[in-house]
């Protein structure tokens, strides 16, 4: 596993050298773009982290979780990742905030932190995506797009949980 990223990096640099690219300057440009992304994320992160901390401190999060957990307990999805699973399909910035909160509270390398990371990485802002993609078309009935997308999300959450829990990745 620990070879994946080093190999990717070497491959990237070698192909770039082969195509006579100013590798260093390109990296600098890209890193600058990264700063723009970070600045774009920051306000949403602040808004959601603030709300997430309030939900936790007030005890409201426990109330919400106790409503849904009977279903998810059956499959073995940890209660602690439910807030992430709930917000993920709606808001990317929101999910980032909740993931940060989850990682900080339960640790990034524990089972919960890993499951939360995998859920974040393998799912998308499904409903936002559906809205944006159909917005400029003439389609009024999206029919099977929504259930299929949701099936994909649920598969992601279940498989991610099982992989971490059973295989100890």
């Amino acid at each position: 596993m620990q070879y994946i990223i080093p190999i990717l990096i070497i491959l990237m640099i070698l192909t770039a050298l082969k195509s006579k690219l100013p590798v260093y300057d390109t990296f600098i440009t890209g890193a600058g773009d990264g700063m723009k992304i970070v600045l774009g994320i920051f306000p949403a992160l602040l808004a959601v982290l603030t709300a997430a901390y309030m939900l936790r401190a007030s005890g409201a999060i426990d109330l919400i979780i106790s409503f849904i957990s009977p279903i998810t307990d059956l499959i073995g999805i940890p209660r602690e990742v439910l807030p992430l699973a709930m917000i993920r399909p709606i808001s990317g910035g929101g999910a980032l905030g909740i993931l940060t909160d989850t990682l900080n509270t339960y640790g990034a390398d524990g089972e919960i932190g890993k499951i939360a990371s995998v859920i974040m990485g393998s799912t998308e802002t499904t409903f936002y995506c559906l809205c944006v993609y159909f917005a400029k078309t003439r389609v009024k009935h999206t029919l099977r797009a929504v259930p299929c997308a949701v099936i994909g999300d649920i598969t992601g959450i279940v498989v991610g949980t099982l992989l971490i829990k059973l295989l100890n990745f």
Binding site: K18, S19, T26, F27, T29, G30, A31, D33, G34
Partner: peptide
């Protein structure tokens, strides 16, 4: 984050 966007820019430019 910036490290990775930098690396990915290299990947993007090298085809």
């Amino acid at each position: 984050m910036c490290f990775w966007t930098g690396m990915l820019k290299i990947a993007e430019k090298s085809g």
